[in-house]
Amino acid sequence: MQVNVTVNGTVFTREVEPRLLLIHFLRDELGLTGSHWGCDTSNCGACVVWLDDVPVKSCTVLTAMADGRRVRTVEDLDRGGQLDPVQQGFAECHGLQCGFCTPGMMMTARWLLDHNPDPSAEQVREAISGQVCRCTGYENIVRSVLWAAKHEGGGT
């Protein structure tokens, strides 16, 4: 089937199998390998991207379901080469080690701060509770998001 998916502001028209998962479309068809897959069962959140402005686990979404919709991935997080405060926060607060969960975590963090510019640590923990990090024990991810909240120069 043919799909038209707007990814990071660009419309992509592709012929795909209906069963193609969105994460594989992004990674294998479009070469956007910043988003990862980690569990296959919607538990780990390494694959989180935005679908029509809402974070979603893209290993559990068919590309067909994204037809006519907008997708935003980690590759679109910076603003004209300038790192998003969330990205800066993760680098500043050692919010990552292996870097595998990081893109998904940052996409959720960006969404959280867009909707709650001044979250508590507890709210950050709640927001990322569907995403697994095996390296940080979450401590520095929470600090990174709080750092970003503090250093926001206006939302996206």
Binding site: T60, V61, T108
Partner: peptide
């Protein structure tokens, strides 16, 4: 129920 991301969709 599930987690915030799953609840979104």
């Amino acid at each position: 129920i599930a987690d915030p991301i799953v609840r979104n969709w």
